[in-house]
Design a protein around this nucleic acid. Structure first.
Length: 557
RNA sequence: GCGCCCGUAGCUCAGCUGGAUAGAGCGCUGCCCUCCGAAGGCAGAGGUCGGGGGUUCGAAUCCCUCCGGGCGCGCCA
């Protein structure tokens, strides 16, 4: 019997006993949690606390009598546990080793599919990364890509039908600014004194684009009016930069189902149509020639303009269209935005409510990042033009370290990213700690007799498992499905990074305390089986985070 | 001024929607390779969970208030 089933049986038995002994008390929920301290057992439940009042007895008395009853009236359930102790009102339980062996067998049997849920028919639209197509991706997008990519993987693991998308903000003034900036770089190739626009994008990344245009079209545009070259340069810049962003996102290991162009939403008439829908619902009004959305009635600070006095929709107007489209086609919509979008949480949630989909939209804000190199802060000033791109970071520390560091902290928490630390192959680096665990197992398996490994893989003889560090590791491995579900429920992907370190830690402890390749064949195979299970879970977790699980580590640091 | 987020060990951070003596990594002090990878393990020191009230059997967690830090408050995108 699997641990979860054993706990469920325990909970059911307790519920029966409560109904019998305290018929007047409301039916309690018997929940288990892993206690902080290992000596309190594998799991603990606090049912006795909630019963104490109705029973007019101390929680400890209630717990003690429930345990006594359980032993007497449900001996088959009690037999699944090595210990059931009422302590200070809690009921602490320790599962019998046989149950943990069943857990290991299940992990070996299911492999990659371990804990993975069947499709539950719920569609989730997940948007993140979305940047202006006016430059390369930078650190901020690195964090949202890491968080979003991991969350998408976790949600899929839990059986959700996830649709990952990106909105390209390719509409509005900034496209003209991009076009003029690019044109200036182009013109400067022929006349270095050509003025650069004051509000232009000064980054060097436009130089190669200007070169390509000069090679393609020669001097042709120097003699044309702005009305002729602006659309050409804006489109070329936009298309090229978006393509580069897509390459970077792919390099980072994030796959998108849709790159939605904002301009397209305007051109197809969706924006105006969806704004009209909002108007029909009565959530708008006209003032001084502009159309306002009654956002303040839905939790926002104030009402927002969605169509300007001159008839053009605002950015927020386009957002209405985009989110309405998403809400119509998905059961749930999640946006992951950058740190300068706090004001958007209420605005977007209010929008969802106004459109008739209250509570169907979640907004996550990925907090700010400070880049360090050792003790020195790395400047990321966009105005100065000396931007550090996401590609620069990937060149310096690699995809694995970047993905892990960016997702390691709670999304809400500001992040300091030390480039020097991330690239250091040292014990300070959590990425290596986890990967080393995987590589260490691979190394043991390489040293083992292949026949033993084959036998271990079948999960047939696990009876030799019983040491505390073996059972602790088994328990940890069994947590995977619960952990991923927690990530999905709380939209908290950083828990996976924490779990990866916990698994590695429990493995390293086991490795230190138990020799795997012993002379006793039964023990050897049992421990190899545990290694195989640990390797599988580690690979799975690292995969969810988007980090590779290496068979060996290079020893150069 | 209003709104959102944050404040936990010297540093960086967890704390699983209210549970037991508040945890981990780094740094510091010591120990552990005749053995499968020491990029590892063990032990120790280090805390008024920003302050103060409240809710209850029980609060780092929920509510109020104050202090401190970050971000946002365009008919820009």
């Amino acid at each position: 019997m699997l641990p979860d089933d054993a706990l469920a049986a325990f909970a059911a038995a307790i519920a029966d006993l409560v109904a019998e002994r305290y018929p007047d008390a409301p039916a309690p929920t018997v929940a288990f949690e892993a206690p902080r301290r290992p000596e309190f057992g594998d799991f603990a439940t606090n049912v006795a606390f909630s019963l104490a009042k109705a029973a007019r007895r101390s929680p400890n008395d209630v717990a003690a009598s429930l345990v006594a009853d359980l032993r007497e009236k449900a001996p088959n359930v009690a037999a699944l546990f090595a210990a059931i102790d009422p302590v200070a009102g809690f009921i602490n339980v320790r599962l019998a080793p046989i149950v943990w062996r069943t857990q290991i067998a299940a992990i070996l049997r299911d492999g990659e599919a371990f804990g993975r849920k069947a499709p539950r028919g719920e569609r989730i639209s997940l948007e993140f990364g979305s940047a202006n197509p006016t430059g390369p991706l930078v650190v901020v997008q690195g964090r949202t890509l890491s968080i979003g990519g991991t969350l998408a993987n976790a949600l899929r693991y839990c059986g959700y039908d996830v649709f990952v998308e990106w909105i390209i903000n390719d509409h509005g003034n900034q496209m003209d600014t991009l076009g003029r900036s690019l044109y200036a770089r182009y013109a400067q190739r022929f006349d270095p004194s050509h003025a650069f626009p004051e509000d232009g994008y000064p980054g060097e990344y436009l130089l190669p684009l200007a070169q390509r245009l000069a090679e393609r079209d020669g001097e042709k545009w120097l003699h044309e009016p702005e009305s002729a070259w602006l659309p050409v340069f804006a489109k070329f810049g936009r298309d090229t930069l978006v393509a580069e962003q897509q390459v970077t996102a792919q390099r980072f290991g994030v796959r998108y189902d849709l790159w939605q162009s904002e301009r397209e939403l305007h051109e197809t008439g969706n924006v105006l149509a969806d704004i009209a829908h909002l108007r029909e619902l009565g959530h708008t009004y006209e003032l001084e020639g502009a159309l306002f959305f009654r956002a303040s009635e839905f939790g926002d600070d104030k009402d927002r303009v969605i169509i300007r006095g001159d008839g053009r929709p605002t950015y927020y107007g386009a957002d209405i269209a985009y989110h309405y489209e998403k809400l119509k086609r998905a059961d749930r919509v999640i946006d992951i935005l950058g740190p300068d979008h706090h004001g958007y949480i209420n605005r977007l949630k209010g929008l969802a409510e106004a459109l008739g989909y209250p509570g169907r939209l979640d907004v996550l804000i990925a907090q700010q990042i400070t880049l360090m190199r050792g003790n020195e802060q790395v400047s990321m000033s966009k105005r100065a033009g000396n931007i550090i791109t996401l590609d620069d970071i990937l060149d310096e520390v690699g995809v694995d370290a970047a993905r892990f560091f960016f997702v390691m902290l709670a999304t809400d928490s500001p992040l300091t990213f030390d480039l020097k630390l991330a690239v250091e192959a040292s014990s300070e680096n959590p990425v290596y700690y986890v990967q080393y665990g995987h590589a260490r197992i691979a190394s043991v398996l390489k040293n083992a007799d292949p026949a033993d490994v084959r036998a271990a893989r079948s999960g047939a003889d696990l009876d030799a498992l019983g040491e505390p560090s073996e059972l602790a590791l088994a328990r940890r491995l069994g947590e995977l499905p619960r952990v991923v579900q927690g990530v999905a429920d709380h939209l908290a992907p950083h828990r996976l990074a924490k779990y990866a370190r916990d698994v590695a830690s429990d493995f390293h402890q086991f490795y230190t305390e138990c020799k795997i390749l012993t002379d006793d064949p039964a023990q050897r195979r049992a421990r190899l089986a545990l290694c195989l299970a640990a390797k599988s879970v580690l690979a799975q977790v690292l995969g969810l985070i988007g980090v590779s699980a290496p068979e060996s580590m290079e020893r150069d640091g």
